[in-house]
Design a protein around this nucleic acid. Structure first.
Lengths: 232, 232
DNA sequence: CCAAAAGTGTTTCACGTACACCCATGC
DNA sequence: GCATGGGTGTACGTGAAACACTTTTGG
């Protein structure tokens, strides 16, 4: 056949990347899904992803897919796990390297689930049944986020560059699904010295405006080198 | 060509698994390496591994490679990370899913590095330059082991089924590279309730024989379900 | 002046850490 | 009897957790 121009001595699986993209909405963690335009699972919701090209690293493939399918750029991206069960794709053998990404929804506003691009943000409580083994990947990503947010300062990736301490606290309350004492939280965060006061305050709020802070990544990396461990 | 019987419309990478196998020697963590019999990197040391077959899950491939190349069976095995840089194999595109394994060296005695099978156990201090990007994979596995041993009870996988508390303590001292206070260690371990006294004691030692203990995995899993967190 | 969220200290308790001596056994 | 590791308890200090009121601002 004309189109079958790539020939190998042994059979080879296809390799894809899939991304679980998390964003922080007012009261929930939302996940970006796309509606499949092609078989298999045509019309069903799935994680954004696609095939790894021969001349790109797998991390680059994940970034490219995010850009192509969701217009997201400059996100926090981390490899999650590789899914390689024989039957995970009904057509043929596909091994998928899963990633998870954290984005600032304040920049990339939530699009309706039914817009032209068939892209939507879903909360855990109304997560649909997804194509392939994507529900399993989604759950693994959520578990990883919950575990990692406690001992690495990745939560800041979900907030705008400047944020109030209440916003930061709420982020942890949402992800860890528990309430946190306001005074203890502030004491702890500020005592680490990696979240710095700015000279700005909130604008356009119907109550006393809170001070804005920002994460000092350089300082964090320095402290980490000296043995400091972030922990919430 | 006759042998090139697998044809695809788009090019596909090869997919391999590589395993970092750790064992606990008297005073060190040792890693199992094999000497390559084939190009590329013929004659150089490398992690055991090989191609994923089309009808086996990737976890199964890792287990099979361990069995075939090192005769190891029934080991603790966990996926580590997937390495997919374009140039990581000089021949053609190979994506490798790395695993790490913990084995009880008391069962599988250390073979000389120069025996017929060209298998050897190496400590971190005399780790040779390895084929491909295997030194990077090795370092990542060691980092993972050091991190994970602190909050999951995986250390027991490196000890015989029955062990003394001093052996357990030494394991943590070796992996975490720090000394630990004996009384505090015993207090902590025993207070968790997942390490049970047996009615046996050490045999053939030239001093007072220590009591043997064993890890109670069922109890650990129960406690974990109730929110208990292992931590050293 | 009322609603809404910001901001602020102290006390209590649990747990981690530091520390030294006697005991049992084999040779 | 001596060398070797086994086994044990207490005191102290740090850090986590509990807890409530005043302040600021906009409407």
């Amino acid at each position: 056949m004309d189109t079958m121009k790539y020939q190998y001595e042994y059979p080879r699986p296809s390799v894809t990347v899939d991304c679980v993209v998390f964003g922080l909405d007012d009261n929930e963690i939302k996940t970006l899904l796309i509606q499949r335009k092609l078989e298999p699972f045509k019309g069903e919701w799935a994680l954004p992803g696609g095939f790894v090209l021969m001349d790109e690293d797998i991390d680059a493939a994940a970034l490219r897919e995010l850009r192509e399918e969701t217009s997201l750029d400059k996100v926090y991206l981390e490899q999650l796990y590789t899914y390689g069960a024989v039957e995970r794709d009904p057509r043929y053998r596909v091994i998928s390297v899963a990633y998870y990404a954290l984005v600032k929804l304040s920049n990339h506003k939530v699009k309706a689930a039914t817009d032209a691009e068939n892209v939507g943000w879903f909360s855990a409580s109304d997560m649909p049944k997804l194509a392939f083994d994507h529900n399993i990947i989604y759950e693994a990503a959520l578990d990883r986020l919950r575990a990692k947010v406690r001992y690495e300062p990745i939560g800041f990736e979900l907030l705008p560059k400047k944020f109030t301490l209440s916003e930061l606290q709420k982020l942890y309350e949402i992800i860890l699904e528990k309430t946190i004492d306001k005074r203890n939280f502030r004491k702890k965060i500020l005592s680490m010295g990696i979240v710095l006061e700015t000279d700005e305050i909130q604008q356009d709020v119907a109550h006393r405006a809170a001070r804005l802070y920002q994460f000092d990544e350089k300082k964090y990396l320095n402290l980490k080198k000296q043995g400091f461990n972030f922990e919430i």
